[in-house]
Simulated assay, not measured.
Amino acid sequence: MKCSENALNILTVRSFPQKGPAWIDKNLHGNENLSVLYKLLETNEYEFLKRRDRIESAINQLGNSIDGLVAIGDVDFPHIRGIVKPADKPFALFYKGDISLLNKDNLNVAVIGVLNPDDKIELTERMVTTEILKHNATIISGLALGCDSIAHKTSLERSGKTIAILPSPLDNILPKENVKLAEKIVENGGLLISEYYETPKSRNDMISRFVVRDRLQALFSDAVLLAASYAPNNLGNDCGSRHAMEKAKVYGIKRGVIYNESKHCNIAMYDLNRQILAEDRNVIRIDSTNMSEAVLRLVTTSNEQMLF
């Protein structure tokens, strides 16, 4: 396993009270001398190294489920896209597969959506994802059932690379139904990443990890595409896609939605798509009538668009 002393130190700092992502972003750049860390944390060598040994032992328990750990200050720690507030910035990532897929010069497009798409939604998502792949994009999603799985599988079927961002440690793939899919992603040159090395402490902790995971889909992507999603409601069928779409808007990441007014206006699974289009005129609408042109707008940068 590839893991620098710096990465272990960063995780150790995080284990101290009130030393969250915002504090780390403000006070650390990575590769600080241990004496500097002791002073910043107002602690001593014994306490710091005791915590670090415990964390290193826990990471070693992950075994072959991870290839490495990278943190801020490491050469291969990925750059984020967009303008992200300190509290949202990742500081350490566990990975299995090709971490270079998160390089800033790699075109990454997140494709997300509901857990229970019907056949028509799946067909349309596959068509649009295939069009995105024609631009040498890497597809990012969350390995969930439904639209996430469709995005990953379409990429694999088209010999593309795909990245799965997980809310769980990499030795505990969730959902269990997608363990084989996760293995195929890595076998085909893709990537699995997670911010976690320990199981959640409670049900609420697990739920919060899904929400926190969704922000990574936005900040590691050049664009985020919503295939289909219910809008927030009291029926219990709301999905996490809205969190990634909201974060993409806050970060200044391009957003696209699949939507056709004549076909989808009365379908509940497109409620969020419709709502986002109504609220933000900068969102790119994609359907079968404008697919090539709309996908081109989604995957090109502002500077590239000026050339057309």
Rank of each mutant, 00 (worst) to 15 (best):
L143K: 09
I112E: 00
N282S: 09
A151G: 00
D119M: 08
S241F: 01
A92Q: 09
P21A: 13
I267H: 08
I276G: 05
L115E: 10
K176W: 10
M291K: 12
E304A: 06
L216S: 01
T12A: 07
S57K: 14
L298Y: 08
N60H: 14
D98S: 05
N172K: 15
L235N: 10
S159T: 13
A87H: 06
L219R: 12
Q61I: 13
G236H: 12
N103S: 11
I24M: 11
I132T: 00
G68Q: 05
D271N: 15
R274F: 14
A268D: 15
I55G: 05
G236D: 07
I173R: 09
S221N: 03
V75H: 11
S35G: 02
V128W: 09
G190L: 04
E304F: 05
L115A: 11
S292Y: 12
L40M: 13
T43D: 04
I267D: 09
A248W: 07
P117C: 00
E187C: 04
N27R: 02
G252C: 15
S57A: 14
G160N: 10
A223Q: 06
K39L: 05
V224Y: 00
L115N: 07
K50H: 14
L192A: 06
I80D: 01
I185D: 04
D74G: 05
N290G: 11
R203T: 14
I59A: 08
N31A: 04
S149N: 01
S4F: 13
K263F: 06
I10Y: 01
V179K: 15
I121S: 05
I132L: 01
D53L: 11
N204G: 03
R209W: 02
A22Y: 04
L216R: 01
G142Y: 08
V13L: 09
G146L: 14
L115C: 07
R297K: 13
P78I: 07
K134W: 14
P200L: 11
D280Y: 02
F210Y: 06
E187F: 03
A218V: 00
D76L: 01
R158Y: 06
A87C: 03
I163H: 00
L41V: 10
A137E: 15
S292G: 14
V257Q: 08
M1A: 14
F308K: 05
I139F: 00
T289A: 10
I55D: 06
H29R: 13
A87N: 03
F16V: 02
S288E: 15
L145E: 11
S241T: 01
S159N: 12
V75K: 15
D88R: 08
Q217K: 00
I83N: 09
Y251R: 01
Y46N: 09
I59C: 04
N237A: 04
G146D: 11
I276C: 02
A227S: 15
V179M: 11
L307G: 01
L216F: 02
K161N: 11
V36A: 02
G68L: 13
